[in-house]
Design a protein around this nucleic acid. Structure first.
Lengths: 222, 222
DNA sequence: TTGCCTATACCGATTACTAGGTATGTCTAC
DNA sequence: GTAGACATACCTAGTAATCGGTATAGGCAA
């Protein structure tokens, strides 16, 4: 069944349920969510997959109206799965189920064209709300997301705190290269590396290597 | 109902269900798991809590047979909750629900006297198996745990790599204290700190601060 | 075009860290 | 009771990092 049918034949809704593909590498969450969704009269979990690979095979072989997927998975992220799914089934609606409230992740997802984003620590009602919204062609975001996006603005500044070159050098520092080695690797003078290093220290507000590395960890440059 | 009743009056099982307190900060998992458990004739989720604090209040006010709790929670870990629960209700059976397959965590939990350990990426049947086992006074571990414990043996060597004093000093280094400052904090000579530092470097196989910090991160000393 | 940012480069002084050592008192285990 | 591990402390030397500057060339935007 195509979702769009309902735009014209709304009362057909009860005749055939929306077919959902549910993807999560945590079996328990998979089964729990399935149980929740299957209590609905409008939706049914047609298939479940515990890996992105299996999900892709199912997507190729079958027609689903909605893809609900975990974000964190071994083989690929939920976002990559969404992109692949949209490529092979342009009409499919996608909902990400995640415990990630990391602003950068959320922003990236929204850019990719995900239809719904549900935090795992939200109530299960939010899954139902999300399903309802996306089938009506709208977007759904868990309540906390707007706050997260506001936080994200601050983080953008942090991300642009370092210039690309400085970031490059910080990464090399984090790989245990000395100033001399970095100079050799980048074909620049040791003095230049020292200056960059100095500027990074100043920008990150740290006084030694340790602070630098901690900053690198915090900003996922390692 | 006390679990022990059933040791003498096995056929009473059907008369009253085991009362479970279910704790998880992820609302969706909470509700999903509740739905799963409530299909059982032997068990019922008497209460749920989405924080350790709430859980403790419920534990004080009510009688539960079994505590099922998430491991990763904001206020305290599942293990700490288990310890507190056992302290106030010695007879309570405890099951940890976790996605942690980190050997050190699993080992610590087992030492604490947790009755069951279920990985979140296990099937929901394993929750039922766990409930069944712990009510019969046995322990339950998800299948993958044995492998994890074998891995853990290697990790033990890593954990005992550093002496307590060295670990203490590494923690201070990671807090951006210089050798001089550490000496002042610990009331020891700079020389001593230098020696420790040297030994840590040698043991971790690194040649500078960066390697030290990365080791500290890898071993969760930060 | 003028001003700001960035990347580049250098200098000098000081501090901190790394890498070899040696040595001693304490405590634990065999 | 003796060997081994640990924490303690010191020495010398060399290397690396930090902190204070200054300076120039290129790009981009007001």
């Amino acid at each position: 069944m195509k979702i769009w049918d309902n735009l014209y034949l709304g009362n057909l809704r009860k005749m055939e349920k929306y077919k959902i593909l549910l993807v999560d590498d945590h079996q328990i969450l998979l089964e729990g969510t399935r149980t929740l969704i299957d209590t609905s009269e409008l939706f049914t979990v047609a298939d479940t997959a515990n890996s992105a690979r299996v999900a892709m095979e199912l997507l190729k072989a079958n027609d689903y109206d909605i893809l609900i997927t975990d974000y964190e998975m071994p083989e690929m992220t939920g976002m990559e799965l969404v992109q692949l799914a949209k490529a092979s089934c342009p009409d499919i609606k996608t909902i990400i189920l995640s415990m990630h409230d990391d602003p950068s992740v959320v922003k990236e997802l929204l850019k990719t064209g995900v239809d719904g984003y549900v935090l795992k620590n939200d109530t299960h009602q939010s899954i139902k709300d999300a399903l309802d919204k996306v089938t009506r062609g709208k977007k759904f975001l868990s309540e906390d997301i707007s706050e997260i996006l506001i936080q994200g603005i601050d983080n953008d500044q942090k991300n642009t705190l370092l210039t690309p070159r400085e970031e490059e050098i910080l990464k090399l520092i984090a790989k245990e290269f000395s100033t001399k080695q970095i100079a050799e690797i980048l074909f620049i003078s040791e003095r230049t590396v020292e200056t960059h290093r100095k500027n990074i220290l100043k920008k990150t507000g740290s006084t030694n290597l340790v602070g630098l590395i901690k900053y690198a960890y915090a900003n996922k440059l390692v």
